[in-house]
Computed example of a mutant assay.
Amino acid sequence: MKIILANPRGFCAGVNMAIESLERALEFFGAPLYVYHEIVHNKYVVERFLRRGTIFVESLEEVPAGAPLLYSAHGVSPQIREQARKRNLRAIDATCPLVTKVHLEAVKYAKEGYTIILIGHEGHDEVIGTMGEAPERMVLVETAEDVERLELPENTKLAYLTQTTLSVDDANQVITALRKRFPQITNPPKDDICYATQNRQEAVRELAKRADVVLVLGSQNSSNSKRLAEIANALGPHAHLIDGVAETKPEWFEDAETVLITAGASAPEDVVQECVEYLQSRYGATIQEEIVREENVHFPLPKSLRELLPAGTASSRVGS
């Protein structure tokens, strides 16, 4: 058996920044430390922080007044920020800067009188936060079929934005449908889909055709991880989205000569290596790493956290 290790895979700069922010905040404040929503959508990352005294909440009512609170990488709505201010919470904003960019675009378009069509998945933390920026001016669509069902007044000023973790192909299908139905629709000068999402999808498209089986490390609630598995399955190989090696099944590897392993942007590298070691020990697998795209993106820790930390300790350790 041969293992192809996709590169890039795993943590992106936004996830690195968010996890590093939580690490540093725990060191500074100690436990318990509150986080609004899961810090990132990954079972192993969340469980590790739970063991260290992190409390993930879905309502700010669960956070004692005046306590430290970290916003997750997926961002929050202005309404949540206002609630936090009223409760005198010590908020640290670990929102990925690429998500913040979409929020700012939503505010800009809303102020200019546009109706904004957001392409994304209903109920996703990022979508909830983005729509909170201008709820009265935003409409959510997930598919080209949703576009056909839109009922908007004639001559409505329209703009579209996208969730950062979508499949590029899926987003393009919806964008094509929007442009066909609303030729006047406008969009930001730069694509909203995150560089890491695109790079990981590109690697899977290029490498999956050479594999009999694809293992995508990531959690079921991770949008970008699910997209990787969908892309691989569309190319023919049997793709499986798993949190870790414990979820693998021996029958997946019967007659498999080549296994591609990749990981979503919120999946830690150690779960990848556990899968590699399992296939090495059980099947004598050899490893071939394939670099499809170099990544050198780095995001600084949130300003509010940098101000708390001693000088020289406030840069994010990317790649951990």
Rank of each mutant, 00 (worst) to 15 (best):
C12R: 03
P97Q: 03
A144Q: 01
P97Y: 01
A6E: 00
T248D: 01
I19W: 05
L152A: 05
L33G: 07
Y44C: 02
V168M: 12
R179C: 05
L161M: 01
L260F: 06
G120V: 04
V259R: 10
G319A: 11
G319H: 09
G129A: 08
A229R: 13
T165E: 09
E257K: 15
A285R: 08
D146W: 07
D93I: 08
R200P: 05
E58N: 14
L150D: 02
D191R: 15
S315V: 13
A265I: 06
H124F: 09
T95G: 02
Y109P: 05
P302D: 05
G264W: 09
E58Q: 11
P189L: 04
E62F: 11
E126C: 08
P302Q: 09
A208G: 06
G244H: 08
M17W: 06
E247N: 08
R90I: 14
A67N: 11
Q173S: 13
H121N: 14
E257L: 12
V213N: 09
S225F: 03
E289V: 14
C275S: 02
Y160H: 09
Q280H: 09
V45M: 11
A311T: 00
S320K: 14
V276K: 15
E290M: 15
K249D: 12
R24K: 15
L152D: 00
N172W: 12
D170P: 05
E27F: 02
A246T: 12
T156F: 00
E136Q: 10
E58K: 15
Q280E: 15
R205S: 10
Q83T: 00
L279D: 10
G264Y: 01
E142C: 06
P8M: 07
S59L: 03
K2A: 03
L150K: 05
Y71F: 15
V272E: 13
G66C: 13
V127S: 05
N187G: 10
G284W: 03
D192M: 04
D125R: 13
P135K: 11
T176P: 03
L98W: 04
L305V: 03
L118V: 10
A106D: 03
I116M: 11
H238C: 03
A314K: 13
L98A: 04
K2S: 09
A94L: 01
